[in-house]
Computed example of a mutant assay.
Amino acid sequence: MASDWNRDLYIKACRFAAQAHLGQLIPSSDLPYLLHLNLVSMEIIAALGVEAGHDGDLAVQCALLHDTIEDTDTSYDTIATIFGTRVAEGVAALSKNPELDKSQQLLDSLHRIERQPREIWMVKLADRITNLQPPPIHWDVAKIRRYREEAIEIHTHLQSASPFLASRLAQKIEQYPPKT
């Protein structure tokens, strides 16, 4: 049986994320940032539909809130008060540490994610699946290659969380340029 999730908690998290990210756009686009968050949650919901044993509420809420600490003025304490400590811990693990050099941020985040429940791992997989769209036209080949290599690193670290999402990410990596 697939993993279930509470629709009311989804709506609560979606409304909160919409307000927190109000006016924010997906980088290099004119699309509202809420679209990205909904695409990440859609990947999570698809995985929950075919995989049993996941805490669907934790996964869905963290999918919708995963960028609130990193990209808005929302604090850990606010997330913990409204959504609980488990969700706040997950969102914090998914957030880059701005005090670290950019070259260290991904590995640091992956190590913090690996200390979280598997549902948080799933959110990171779903986030990168969603982000592996055609790269912005202003990215050079080196930047595209680094982004693809980061995706491979995410897959390597977190693939055991969800066979469904791991397969989706592997497919997206294979399709993402450049392969050489």
Rank of each mutant, 00 (worst) to 15 (best):
R86P: 01
L58G: 06
T74E: 03
Q61Y: 00
Y33S: 05
A92D: 09
C62E: 08
G84I: 06
T78E: 14
E99P: 00
E43H: 09
T68S: 09
A47H: 04
L39I: 01
D30S: 12
F83T: 07
S29D: 00
L58S: 10
S29L: 01
K96S: 05
R86S: 12
A47N: 06
V40M: 03
I26L: 02
L48Q: 07
I44D: 03
R86G: 00
A88R: 10
D55I: 08
L94W: 08
G84H: 07
L35A: 06
G56Q: 10
V40Q: 03
N97T: 10
V87M: 11
T74L: 02
V87I: 15
G53M: 10
L31G: 00
K96H: 07
P32H: 03
I45F: 01
V91R: 03
K96D: 05
S41A: 15
D55S: 10
S28V: 05
G49A: 04
L37R: 14
H66S: 14
V87P: 00
D30W: 02
N97D: 15
Y33E: 09
A88M: 08
G49K: 07
E99G: 13
L34S: 11
E51P: 00
L48Y: 12
A92P: 00
L64T: 10
E51N: 02
P98K: 15
R86W: 01
E43L: 07
D57C: 01
I45C: 10
N97P: 01
G53S: 04
V40T: 13
D73E: 05
D77P: 00
T72M: 04
A46F: 09
A93R: 08
S41R: 12
